[in-house]
Design a protein around this nucleic acid. Structure first.
Lengths: 246, 246
DNA sequence: CCAAAAGTGTTCCTATTACACCCATGA
DNA sequence: TCATGGGTGTAATAGGAACACTTTTGG
């Protein structure tokens, strides 16, 4: 055992990492929200080549002593100004020439926030773009991005593909995982929640069964408060509660 | 607003990819099969430090002009001797000190084969180990590995964690994705298929509803042939057919 | 003829869907 | 009082689970 350790120590001392092909690892984060039937994401203007002047997902190189998730959190904080949101690893993209500078493998993450919070952090070098999904269900493929005026926004790198995987993942998880709540503020009505689900899925849902399914899930807690100034009967406001283990 | 800009400016100033210490990207592949209620995976003996003499998943560095999936296929071919099997990206592991040599980010893949085919490629520097899953459902966590004699096998690196994610992923996908077939030879009985599912899930399934569910899925095609020499009524042999788009 | 496992028809149960109707609010 | 959407009770339906039963082989 000591022998092995000694051998390993000697090996590590002689080890030269530079003989391996240079490769960079980045993390790109798709920050997504849903509002009035539309999915949005936050983009950052690139100030340097490649793709200078184009819009890209918030992202950055992984630092030597930083975990992948820590990189994602840092990027979200520094480039998008948000923290404490739902964040999950998505997929890793490593096509040889996806970055013209050098070989860059990027680990894609996606994060979910409510629309108001996303809008609060737009400005300067960042903007929002709407996701238009040109495929149904979980077919998959890149998404199209359009700006406020309906103009096409062509993202840098393979970020349209990354966003496509985000939508596919969200559609897949929505049924069995409480990610819909992540797109809403702290309190929300059942209709808000249903709209968020419909926006992600790109299809309409049955009102009654959706209500019952959500209430039966045990993930919702009535706040006792109601909407105000809504021009019709005000809906109950609910809060998301983590399902407690039995 | 100005605050955000300042952050971004600092961010840009700090980021010069050339300054960074080298980072390596590897691909590790968990080749899994199921037989008589047990999940197995193929391990390779490490001939060099770190973890010299220990057992690890087949893996290797991503080459400069090689996609991640190409690396996975090469590793499967060169180290495990199999090709043309189900292969899917799993998750990317990048904890800072998971490899003592240097910072190594590894993209985990998993591949599925039938047990006979896995056994055919064992020998020399490779062995099989049984996966023992110490958690129920999709709780998650590392798995334990045991050899033929029941002895514990401690894998190198974080490979026990990777295998844990494999099992969790398989359990999640089994219901809505035709991955069960990938664990079986070209023709198989419905009981074989049910056993494979039960092995992955770690729980027993209802015979009748499993049969009907599988036959209704349209993914199975009766070959017209039957088992031979089985000591009881021989079962129909089925074949997996890709669901054709309407 | 018996044991063992394949395969099938029927019923039960549960969860979703669909429909109908009442409720509460602003205008 | 009307329009609008929230909220609820009830019936219809689909799919899985459970059970009983028949079928087909080897011994």
């Amino acid at each position: 055992m000591a022998r092995v350790k000694t051998n390993e120590a000697r090996f590590l001392g002689r080890y030269d990492p530079r003989k391996y092909p240079p490769m960079a690892v980045t993390v790109d984060v798709a920050l997504v929200s849903a509002e009035s039937g539309r999915l949005h994401t936050l983009l950052v203007e690139r100030r340097e080549a490649p793709f200078r002047g184009q819009w890209a997902l918030p992202g950055g190189f992984v630092r030597p002593d930083e975990s992948l998730e820590a990189t994602a959190k840092r990027v979200l904080r520094d480039e998008a100004g948000v923290h404490g949101v739902f964040l999950e690893q998505l997929y890793t993209f490593g096509a040889p020439h996806r970055d013209p500078r050098m070989r860059v493998v990027t680990v894609g993450y996606y994060a979910l926030v409510d629309a108001a919070r996303l809008a609060r952090h737009v400005g300067g070098r960042t903007r929002m773009a709407q996701l238009v999904v040109p495929w149904a269900g979980e077919t998959g493929g890149p998404v199209e991005l359009v700006g406020d005026a309906g103009e096409a926004v062509v993202p840098a790198f393979d970020h349209a593909d990354i966003l496509g995987v985000v939508v596919k993942r969200m559609r897949g998880k929505l049924d069995y995982s409480p990610i819909g709540f992540q797109l809403l503020p702290d309190t929300f009505t059942l209709r808000d929640l249903q709209e968020a689900h419909e926006t992600v899925l790109g299809s309409v849902l049955n009102k009654d069964s959706f209500r019952r399914r959500m209430l039966a899930s045990g993930l919702l807690e009535a706040t006792g408060e109601r909407q105000e100034d809504v021009g019709h009967r005000p809906a109950e406001l609910y809060r998301f509660v983590k399902k407690s283990a039995v």
